[in-house]
Structures are given as C-alpha cells and as structure tokens.
Design a binder for these strands. Structure first.
Lengths: 144, 144
DNA sequence: TTGAAAATATTGAATATTCAACAATTGAAG
DNA sequence: CTTCAATTGTTGAATATTCAATATTTTCAA
C-alpha cells in the first residue's frame, strides 16, 4: 500500500515535474542563443518534414493547447518562419508549412538541441539515457 | 553521434515533457475533486511537516518561481490554508506554516494522490515504476 | 436533400505567470 | 562602526495562457 505520508520527492508525478523542469531549463538556455522558445523549436521540428500539418495535429504533437498554439503560430507567421494554407480537402482545417527561413533556423536549433542531448549522455551515461527513454515511452503508452 | 534529423519523439526533453504532461493531467483531474491545483497540493505536502519554511526554500521545493509562489500563497492565506510568520532570526525571511484547515485538506489530497500512484502501479507495473523513479532521481542528481 | 450534431480553428475576456524594479534586512570588508 | 554588496520577499507592468463562446465547414441520420 502506498503511504500517504511519503515525502513529495517520492511521488512519480513530482519526480517527472522536477526532471522535466531541469532538462527544459537547460534546453531553453541553449535555444535562447537564437532567441527562440522551446515550443517553437518543437513546432519547427515537426513541420520540417515538409508536409502540411493541421493545427489540431500540431497542437497534439507539440504539447500545446489549441488557443495557445494559434497565438504562437501568429507570432511565427509574423517572423516568416511558417505559413498557413487552407486544406483544400477539408476547409475547416488549416495546414501549416515551414518556410525556407524556418528551415534555416530549424537546422541551427536542432544542432543546439543535439548538443544538449550529447551533454546529457556524457554526464548521465549512455545506458541510463536509453533505459530512461524506453521507460518513459512505455509509461506514455500505458497512459492511453 | 546524435542525429539532428531524429524525430522529436526521440528526444529526452520531449519524452519528459510528454510524460509529465500526461501524469500531471491525471493528477489534476483527481485533485479537482477538491478544487485544488497541483501546486497547492505540493505546498501543503511540504508544509505538513509542521516546520516553518521560508518562501525561497518553498519555491525550490514546489518548483515555482518566487513571484508565482508569493501570489499563490496569497490565495492560500485568504483560504486560511497556510499562514505567514516573520522569521525572528532573520527578518528578511517569512516562514510559512500550514493551518489546521490546511492539514485537513492536505490529508484528503494525499489520498487522492496515492490513488493515482496506485493506478499507475497497476497499469504500468511495480518494477517499471520503481526503476523509472530511480532513473529520474539519478538524472536530477547528475544535473546539479 | 435537409437539418442537427460534430469537428476545426480562432477570438476576447479572465486569469496566471514572468520580468524588472523595489524595499527591507543582513553580511562583510575596510 | 560604517558603508556597500548580497539576500530575501513582494509589487506592478508586461506578457502568456486558458476558458468559454463563436464562426465555419463537414458529417450523417432522417
């Protein structure tokens, strides 16, 4: 039986929040070199397959609520990183595409993100990292 | 060498964000029965040792920025869940304490949080859960 | 075919968070 | 001792997020 008086540091929800906060903070720090928030890196990365992605699909993929995504995309359109196209097959939908300018930025951001992953691999270890990834994927799976 | 064209779903930062979002969403759902946000559960849990905790200490423990914590504590003081006492040894500091009303609420919240953990244990497994916790703790350690 | 329900995206108001500046107190060097 | 820097917490303005309502289009049952 789980103990209700266990310290908060033993709760899975807390450990996840803490680890996420820390890793996110580090990534944020790197991406700030290009003045871009983590969410925009995610958006560019998803769009860099060149395909059109609807707002709903994108919101799921980048872990943002719909209205938040709409407003962030507005900014990115202003910065000419992405653009909207109405889906010809379903005119309720908007398809998002990455621009050339967006692709250039995306490359820089990816290399910053890869830097971070390599830094983690060094300090945390190859084995632990891949095991952690495996367990996280499986946790996410089991939650659906 | 890490590949910069790897899908976002293979990045540790992304997997952590995704898992955290999902687990947090579930916890939020349970705690909403008492109309309390996850952060307030954390605050009450930390304070329920009965000791006085300074704002800075508390902010670290509950993963909130200082100004955000100040404003949340304001609300909790209004709700008579916690109270402030000036630290007699260092008058720059404010010591936070949990009230009797806070203790009562904290117990209910803890049992909701334990429910969730037990639910995770069932669907995700005992072994995986403790292994995941161990790896997360070690990741957090290696990041300091 | 029509009309109601569902799906999709956006908007505006309400709420929350963050950043920078501030006030108060303590620490510590000269 | 005095003064200046560091620590601690709060505030207000700027920014961001969320909730509820809206508009548009599609789906589907009658």
């Amino acid at each position: 039986m789980a103990k209700s008086n266990a310290p908060i540091t033993e709760h899975l929800a807390y450990l996840l929040a803490q680890a996420n906060r820390e890793i996110n903070r580090q990534l944020e720090l790197r991406l700030s070199k290009e003045g871009v928030p983590v969410e925009q890196w995610r958006i560019l990365k998803v769009l860099s397959d060149g395909d059109g992605h609807s707002m709903g699909e994108l919101a799921d993929a980048v872990l943002l609520n719909h209205p938040t995504l709409t407003k962030m995309i507005d900014r990115m359109v202003s910065d000419a990183l992405v653009y909207r196209v109405q889906d010809p097959n379903d005119r309720r939908k908007v398809l998002m595409f990455i621009s050339d300018r967006g692709k250039v930025l995306s490359k820089k951001l990816n290399s910053l993100a890869v830097d971070q992953e390599e830094h983690i691999l060094e300090s945390y270890g190859d084995k632990s990292t891949s095991e952690l990834k495996r367990l996280l994927e499986s946790l996410i799976d089991s939650s659906n």
